[in-house]
Amino acid sequence: MRVIRTLIIACVVVLSCGPAYSAEHTLVMHHMELEEVTAPVRAGDVIIFDNRSDMTHNLYVIYSDGTVDNLDTQVPGMQRKLTLRVAGPAVIKCWIHPIIRLEMEIGSQDMPPAP
């Protein structure tokens, strides 16, 4: 009995100390607009950038600490993935089309994942 109880406790400890669950979100590009991600996003989550427009884009993310993640060139129909690195307010822009701009709040990894 004691062994089983110890095993259960060990399993709970291991599971609770494991890596936080990372959600995947899809962000769709339409022409010169980015569709907002409706679910809350957290650092560690993966964004799939889906270019459903008729033009090539080259997006980048500016994090609250000033660092930048560049996605490479995305021709129409192409998807690219990016793992969000830094919690806080972030801005997504396009090198080719400066008019494209999407502000996003990235929650910390401690935040409960999106339902």
């Binding site: 560049n70 080719i96 008019i99």
Partner: peptide, 23 residues
């Protein structure tokens, strides 16, 4: 209102000067 390399022979790298080299 956007930026494109239209393939002109030139030493001028234009907006490339303001973007990281990886872009």
């Amino acid at each position: 209102d956007s930026f494109h390399d239209i393939g002109l022979r030139s030493e001028d790298i234009g907006r490339g000067k303001f973007a990281p080299p990886s872009v």
